[in-house]
Nucleic acid binder design. Sequence first.
DNA 1: TTCAAGACTGCAAACAGTTGCACTAAACCT
DNA 2: AGGTTTAGTGCAACTGTTTGCAGTCTTGAA
Lengths: 317, 317
Amino acid sequence: MTVTIRDVARASGVHVSTVSRTFSAPHMVNAATRTRVLTVAEELGYRPNRAARALTTGRTHNLGLIVADIANPFFPPLIKAAHAAARQRDYHLFVADTDEEPAAEEELVQAFSKQVDGVVLCSPRSSNKALERLAERVPFVVINRRLRGAATVLMDVGHGARLAVEHLAGLGHRRVALVSGPAGSWTSAEIRAAAEQVPGVELAVIGPNAPTERGGFAAAGRVRDAGVTGVLAYNDLVAIGLIEGLGDLGLSVPADVSVVGIDDIVPGRLNRPKLTTVAMPTAAAGRLAVDLLIQEVSATTSLETRLVVRDSTAAPR
Amino acid sequence: MTVTIRDVARASGVHVSTVSRTFSAPHMVNAATRTRVLTVAEELGYRPNRAARALTTGRTHNLGLIVADIANPFFPPLIKAAHAAARQRDYHLFVADTDEEPAAEEELVQAFSKQVDGVVLCSPRSSNKALERLAERVPFVVINRRLRGAATVLMDVGHGARLAVEHLAGLGHRRVALVSGPAGSWTSAEIRAAAEQVPGVELAVIGPNAPTERGGFAAAGRVRDAGVTGVLAYNDLVAIGLIEGLGDLGLSVPADVSVVGIDDIVPGRLNRPKLTTVAMPTAAAGRLAVDLLIQEVSATTSLETRLVVRDSTAAPR
DNA sequence: TTCAAGACTGCAAACAGTTGCACTAAACCT
DNA sequence: AGGTTTAGTGCAACTGTTTGCAGTCTTGAA
């Protein structure tokens, strides 16, 4: 049925251990036998059984990737890059989705634990306690969360936020609203801390809000009442909802209010206005995370973000 | 180090086979011993090793999902739904990306073969021959490709295309262009076949084109020269690129030309014009594919599509 | 010529589970 | 009471591969 190492051994007149070695330690076997085994294996269509291999070596050559929501446009480029990096080193990638539920994180890591050599956790929402507990079960690297002891890949959203607010300040805005994200989000805290440090602008924090278009839409009233001329939104989805909501209140962007988003996930070129936003190096983060995982290095890296100025920001009138 | 079935057996005074059974065939063990074993296992933090289990049973409880491009917005909802369906039955999901390379499909399936109980292939580009060869290695279900012998999930894009052209006809368009997709795409063929059958409109086929914004942009000139008032594009990306390209040529949508896309992937509500498009049941397809795979039923299913009329279509002037 | 060092290869014991079979004891029939 | 079923458990072989150890055969050096 399925062809095993024994079939190859029999057909090529050597012991199974020799076959095993031609695959996992080629230099240990004579060149002649090696090629013989290899051709026989090829003929028979033999492929090593990774599960069996994992049993003895303890290494599965699988990685896990856990994100909050696969369908959130922020993640697919990250997943894609992670996959490419994994594939390049002959690893396979489990992808899982917590559906924004912190409890699912822990459960998924547990479930993965015996089947992967490591997992990358994107923007985890679990408590530090819980994460430390998980770290004992399986090596992991976190993206967008500071966690001592664990390898970490950060996208320097704080820097991006500062650039955004400075951009608004440069245009002449003096009062700026920060439409923040969900409570307890590391990213949201970073953004706020950075935005507050820009001199010359008064910051009104509005939130917490759901990190969705709906969340942004719902915040429109409070933004209007805050008497600001510029807004930094927690992410692009929020920015889009907000612009929509402001429109319903008779305020247009950027004429009446300037809005800048974060993430640069809005594709297509049909958007009016095109969103000024902070671009996040998601692909680089995904790639780097799996590289760190595979090489088992524990480092904390911070990736550059940059401001992309488009049409949703202008000088106040 | 890692706690095995034997540790649990020793600690609870039973044989390993009993421990094994309390997990994989609970009804075969006495209620009292079962709870004892369970509590001991809990205390010790035992979790069955799936790789080892797979070795004897041949079932891994893993599934593979192969798509052309994870970052193409068409796929993430499908992946998410597939993941949810898998998770619900305690399966894990490998996700892989062929980067639009047909050869990668075969290689990935091969690589998965021993590690999954089945794989779902989205819109495969490999030849029928190649696919049949793969079918011998591992059970699979295909999405958006007709393949006899294999379980199949189709999204009835033909029906959607017909609705789209009928919609244009209903608005008064008499000459309509079909900006088609890549050569050899099953979807593209379906669309064309359906579109041609709508009475009262003359169809000009323009293509093949790359299924990207760039592809649509590049087709703008030929669309103008075709002397049409309406266009059905292979997908939304192409539609967006096309609208952009038409704009550069001084043609506005929908005033001068009506455009309808396919897929309904354009998120956000900022688009001007908002795209009239054919919505595809991607989530349902992902869910269904996984269900078919797990239940090992070989059926061919066709999922409904529907037309979403928005602002990129209007009566010709 | 003898001995030590390599280079290959075989042997067999893991790895962490599952499962057909055999066994015991209790429950059920007649 | 004797025989038969049934429930529960243990035994041991098996899954496909890796790997430490030991053996054989060359080689090279002294």
